[in-house]
Amino acid sequence: MTITENTRGTERSGGLFGPVRRYPMGSFVVLALAMSWLAWVPYILSEQGLGLWAYRFPELLGSSQLLGVLPGAYLGPIGAALFVTAVADGRPGLRRWLGRMWRWRVRWHWYAITLLGVPAAMLATGFAYSGGQVNAPSLMAIAVYVPALVMQMLTTGLAEEPGWRDFALPRLQRRFGPLLGTMILGPVWALWHAPLFLTEWGGWPDATWVRPVGFVIFCLAFNVVMTWVFNRTGESLPLAMMAHVSVNNFASVLWSEMFPSLDADNAMAAMASGALIAAVAIMVGTRGRLGYSPRTV
């Protein structure tokens, strides 16, 4: 290495953004949590949260979450990933990051797994927890299912997955391997949601301890499923997003109609159980590799 090259390396690791370049993963986690949590403070303090601020967020499509939760979600994972990638990896890193967002050319059966397999698994767990008490969904619910899925892709999927799976997962897998890397990411993903349990998103103030505990178990387990899908599809972010939002969409549109006897706690327990069974099956079936194939770039 020449003196000039060494000087340039020192300059890149110093300055205002030096810590971001030296610790991109840590910087991403801190920024993702901090930006989302700060943006959620008004929602948490509002009447849809702790009730310390006499204000109600307007409801769009029957929910206050679009205006209360989504802005902070967009600021957090995707915003942090964009910033840290630009600072730490420059244009080559941004091209890789953006390239994974457009990997739609994946074998058809992965579309079936994410779009049909996830709802089928949720049907099975709902059936088990409801004691077989299943109702047919209404025509309205069936009609809005696909449009709602598209909206979930553009909201929840786009806000979260460019950060968790596109930015964080490849780095963690390269450093720690697929299983340990996934086990590190899962708690971060769960922790990011934690303040929302002080709002109507998490059932505040009526929710019991079952819901947050069940949600953490779900995040840890379903994170394994997400890693497997991401790896086996050649790091396709759209397919990882579909796996994620298929859960949200089924739970939001069809769950309560098909399993009216399940309260929120039992519904969360059912989702956590299903995710745990799937995670164990994948870990055993792949011997902990989770479909990972090391890449050179």
Rank of each mutant, 00 (worst) to 15 (best):
M153A: 14
L154E: 07
L154A: 14
L154T: 07
L154M: 14
T155N: 12
T155F: 12
T156M: 12
T156F: 09
G157D: 07
G157N: 08
L158D: 03
L158C: 13
A159S: 11
E160C: 14
E161C: 10
P162G: 04
P162M: 04
G163S: 08
G163K: 06
R165S: 11
R165G: 08
R165C: 07
D166Q: 06
F167S: 03
F167T: 00
A168S: 10
A168C: 08
A168M: 14
A168R: 02
L169P: 02
L169I: 08
L169D: 01
P170I: 14
P170Q: 13
R171H: 13
Q173P: 02
R174I: 10
R174T: 13
R174V: 05
R174F: 13
R174L: 14
R175P: 05
R175G: 02
F176E: 07
F176S: 04
G177Y: 08
P178Q: 15
P178L: 05
L179E: 05
L180N: 07
L180P: 08
G181Y: 03
G181M: 10
G181L: 09
T182Q: 13
I184L: 15
L185N: 00
L185G: 00
G186E: 04
G186H: 06
G186A: 15
P187A: 04
V188A: 11
V188N: 01
V188R: 00
V188G: 06
A190P: 08
A190K: 05
W192Y: 15
W192M: 11
W192V: 05
W192R: 02
H193W: 14
H193N: 09
H193R: 04
H193P: 02
P195I: 10
P195S: 12
L196I: 11
L196T: 09
L196Y: 06
F197K: 04
F197D: 00
F197W: 11
L198Q: 03
T199M: 03
E200H: 03
E200W: 00
W201L: 04
W201C: 02
G202M: 06
G203S: 06
G203H: 03
W204M: 01
W204K: 03
P205V: 12
D206M: 07
D206F: 09
D206K: 09
